[in-house]
Design a protein around this nucleic acid. Structure first.
Length: 520
RNA sequence: GGGGCGGUAGCUCAGCCGGUCAGAGCAGAGGACUCAUAAUCCUUUGGUCGUGGGUUCAAGCCCCACCCGCCCUACCA
């Protein structure tokens, strides 16, 4: 093996979830996409740190806990554990599951606060307006209306509001407009996809008001340093988790120096502003390096309809795992929806992918070729003869998939990578039918061996490339292809062809077809 | 109100700076084959590329207006 230059470390995060409920398919989507990215980079030889977790403070958590008669910490622990268990069930390969109630996070949040304060960007003022307790939000005069009962209501949410004045610390976000716009200009890939990024930019261009960043109306949060009656309001607390996760505030540690700044923050479109505006502003103020990219994914709809509790169409990730299988579910989510766009799912769409793409195109190709090898080649990788032009061509196309996938994953285009891979699988099925090794068996065994060998090679490379998306199934495929765990399954091994004579285990179907339960 | 995105075969969508751009996959139809998870392969179905104008030798691809869907934004009760 020739020594290669070490590849740069890769630090990736999901948004941390608010565990005031249970995870749904949208959470799973983000976890799975981020996980695929992390696995891809590991297989490509990078050191990866993958952070995920839960954001546990705030009034809603407090209320829910009170309602249940438990402490907010107990609630947070219970629900956070459930989120973590769900991630484990989804095969998420996180390196740390962070909880904002952990001691090191308090230290980190207070440290970044102090840095921003020292930079002169935090000041004390009053926050006033029409406050809705239920919405935990302030509304402008124009966003409210006085009803017949003489009370004032929020127009948008139809909840009662009261005039409230609250002492609050503010962050001087207004001072960062130009710096942010320069950042966006200098780093056109700072946020993606472009349409989402444009929304962010136009928001910043429209002018930035200073941001209220503390609360005194409740105490379930990180105390503001030197001002204990204030707790930090959501964003300073939550966003800082990305720093806490790798060792901040101790900026001298190996961990911090190795991982920060993050390479990619994967988030949903609902929180793009916080990640693409507030977060870089906070970091600039604190004098810390900025993350390289904020990847904004879309939302998933149930047959085009938004998920909601009232409609009863919220899907629990575990239900899908049970019904379709984990890898099938992971594949569907990443193959069906271009990452960044909104997507839609339906039972029919999932079954279509499961059966057409997985069971038929990939699973059956493996089964038919491996069965022939088992029966006609003594269960060993056959010895190919001189390769024909069509063999070379197919293999070349397959080998190109590595570069294509790298380019796709670089911009979190999972869908693009999978599309390219399945296109080659289509070519391979056509090749197999065209070469007809079952005919060659009687006419030209040497050629049959070659065709089977080439087909196995395609399967080997495809299996390696598909590991980030379907870790378990890909592993089983590689097993039946005689590829032991470890180096042979890294991307670096893609150029190392199968060794003729390698003994292969008896083939067995890996991607079951979905059968509708008998209805009546 | 301002800004943006999308409206292409039944379904999901490709179509970059205008000139094989009328395409792919899935579904449907016909045929072939039998190695395989009744899988696979081949052929195939003709959709006025949202509507109406305009620019051009030439327009899904440019311009204008309009319709529909979605999103961002705004101190218009």
């Amino acid at each position: 093996m020739t020594p290669t230059a070490p590849k740069p470390p890769f630090y990736i995060t999901t948004a941390i979830s608010y565990p005031n409920g249970v995870p749904h398919i949208g959470h799973a989507y983000e976890f799975i996409a981020t996980d695929a990215m992390a696995r891809f980079k590991r297989l490509d030889g990078h050191d990866v740190f993958f952070l995920t977790g839960t954001d546990e403070h705030g009034q809603k958590m407090l209320h829910t806990a009170q309602k249940e008669g438990i402490t907010p910490l107990a609630l947070a622990k219970r629900n956070s554990d459930f989120f973590q268990a769900t991630q484990d069930k989804l095969g998420i390969s996180y390196d740390r599951f962070i909880r904002t109630t952990e001691a090191d996070h308090y230290a980190a949040a207070q440290a970044i606060w102090k840095r921003m304060e020292e930079a002169g960007d935090i000041y004390l003022d009053k926050y006033e307006g029409w406050y809705s307790v239920r919405d935990e939000a302030y509304y402008g005069e124009d966003e409210t209306v006085v009803r017949e009962d003489g009370k004032r209501y929020s127009i948008e949410t139809d909840t009662e509001v009261t005039w409230t004045e609250e002492e609050s610390y503010f962050f001087r976000l207004s001072a960062y407009q130009d710096k942010l716009l320069k950042l966006y200009e200098d780093q056109p890939d700072f946020a993606a996809p472009r349409t989402r990024f444009n929304e962010v930019i136009s928001f910043v261009k429209g002018g930035l008001a200073d941001l209220s960043i503390s609360r005194t109306t409740f105490d379930w949060g990180v105390p503001v340093p030197g001002s204990p009656k204030h707790v930090m309001y959501v964003w300073v607390d939550a966003l800082t988790n990305y720093l806490t996760g790798v060792g901040f505030p101790d900026t001298g540690t190996d961990s911090y120096r190795k991982w920060w700044p993050a390479d990619v923050h994967v988030i949903g479109k609902d929180i793009s502003r916080f990640h693409a505006v507030y977060w870089p502003a906070f970091l600039m103020s604190a004098g810390l390096p900025l993350p390289k990219r904020v990847m904004i994914h879309g939302h998933l709809y149930n047959q085009g309809v938004k998920m909601s509790k009232s409609l009863g169409n919220v899907i629990a990730p575990a239900d899908w795992v049970q019904q379709y299988g984990l890898d099938q579910m992971r594949f569907f989510l990443l193959r069906e929806v271009p990452f960044g766009a909104d997507g839609s799912y339906s039972h029919e769409a999932i079954v279509g992918r499961m059966n057409a793409d997985l069971a038929n195109n990939l699973g059956n190709l493996a089964q038919r070729s491996l069965s022939m090898v088992a029966k006609n080649c003594a269960g060993q990788v056959p010895q190919p003869a001189t390769l024909a032009p069509e063999d070379h061509e197919l293999l070349a196309r397959t080998e190109r998939l590595l570069e294509k996938s790298r380019a796709a994953y670089e911009v979190q285009d999972f869908h693009g990578s999978l599309e390219a891979i399945w296109s080659v699988l289509g070519d391979t099925n056509a090749y197999f039918a065209d070469q007809a090794p079952w005919v060659l068996r009687k006419t030209d065994v040497e050629r049959m061996n070659t065709v089977l060998y080439v087909t196995l090679e395609v399967l080997r490379i495809v299996s390696i490339l598909v590991q980030p998306v379907m870790p378990t199934s890909a592993s089983r495929l590689l097993e039946v292809l005689g590829q032991p765990e470890g180096e042979a399954r890294d991307f670096a091994a893609i150029g190392t062809a199968l060794v003729p004579g390698t003994v292969l285990p008896a083939p067995q179907p890996i991607f079951p077809k979905y059968e509708e339960p008998a209805a009546d």
